[in-house]
Write a protein that binds this DNA or RNA. Structure first.
Lengths: 208, 208
DNA sequence: TATTCTACATACCAACCAGTCTGTGCGCAA
DNA sequence: TTGCGCACAGACTGGTTGGTATGTAGAATA
């Protein structure tokens, strides 16, 4: 009613509340892993309480699943697939995306905490089939986008005709995750660049 | 005194007791991560009790450190460095080691649970500096052994003179960890083979 | 306006779990 | 033989944590 109340008080906005919980949960999972995530910490970060959390999510695991579905997978799409989609020069764009990965805005903590997708996959896929399937889907999406770019590069003559784009895309994903993992353990941007150089060398070896 | 008692009772053997705890702890960490490891479970697997554990290790973290120092690092050495050491054909041996990795005896669970070294590194290196340094040392040992093999291959003319063996070794480690990680998430041996094929393709691209 | 439902807040609980404390049998030294 | 310390056993605890039960202000509905 009175304007002062409207300012200090948050309006009812369940969708936004849910999103805030999701984003805080994502950060906690990113930093501490799913098992290491504490719901109290997530709630403290959002200034919400148990009531809000359990109104929007059935339990901790459901929250984790939602983070994969609604945060991680969309991020993979916007960060990886979007630039490759409709790129004039798919191969050059692929290399650019790899090189600029550590400087990406959404993840300045990439060196410190690694890749959110791979972190969660390594931690949870052996322990929980629900996580595994969702993360496997994320990798599939990523793979298919990469393979697509390689196929288009092949059509343009940028890479050799006999290259198996399916297998190449799989290896590129794997190698990139490995590079990020090594750099994270060494806590060294330089290590990531060294590692990525090897990956780019591989990609270049696909050229005619 | 009476023989029956001597049979049922374990003789005192503190070294063996310590080793049993270490090995059980390793398996628990391998399967559930360090944060997921429960000391009760470790003790149940060894038929020991809290008294034994806290007699040999100061706390849970010290136990984790000891697992890295006394189980993981020696395993890296015996599994990776030993075959490369004094190999007549370093490059061929390297490829063989990579190909036979999933069939190794110590880790039939490689596909299910991944690489113990990398698992722990991804989980703990951002959270605990003690873990990070020990795991970084493990990667260094691994790297140096690999680089050494590449240098010897270069001397024999198996790979090109302009190849940077330091960087190549780094990338080979990273890519291999990435391959294992992807295969683990897909729970597919086939995926590991596909992925390794890409890595071997990279190694072959180093040849003259 | 009365009622119902949504979207939370808050107090509470039971289970879990790392770590502690005390006890004890055995080997060994003196 | 006695004393002492090592190598454990086993009971206990205090803090943590996921989850629940209850309450309630405001919006929607009738």
């Amino acid at each position: 009613m009175d304007s002062a109340k409207n300012v200090t008080r948050l309006e009812r906005n369940p969708d936004q509340t849910r999103t805030r919980i999701l984003e805080a949960a994502f950060m906690e999972i990113y930093r501490n892993g799913f098992q290491g995530m504490r719901l109290d910490v997530v709630l403290a970060a959002t200034d919400l309480t148990k009531g809000a959390l359990y109104h929007h999510f059935h339990n901790k695991r459901a929250l984790g699943y939602a983070v994969v579905d609604e945060v991680i997978i969309p991020t993979v799409k916007s960060l990886w697939l979007q630039p490759l989609k409709n790129a004039a020069d798919p191969l050059a764009t692929l290399i650019t995306v790899i090189e600029q990965m550590p400087d990406n805005k959404p993840f300045p903590e990439m060196i410190q905490y690694g890749c959110p997708l791979n972190n969660l996959a390594q931690e949870m896929s052996p322990l929980d089939e629900g996580f595994r399937q969702r993360l496997d889907y994320a990798f599939c999406v990523w793979h298919d986008g990469t393979q697509d770019a390689l196929e288009r590069a092949k059509l343009k003559g940028s890479i050799r005709a006999e290259v198996n784009c399916d297998e190449a895309a799989t290896f590129i994903m794997a190698a990139l995750e490995g590079c990020i993992g090594l750099a994270k353990n060494a806590q060294s941007v330089e290590r990531l660049h060294v590692c990525n150089r090897g990956l780019i060398q591989f990609i270049n070896s696909l050229k005619p």
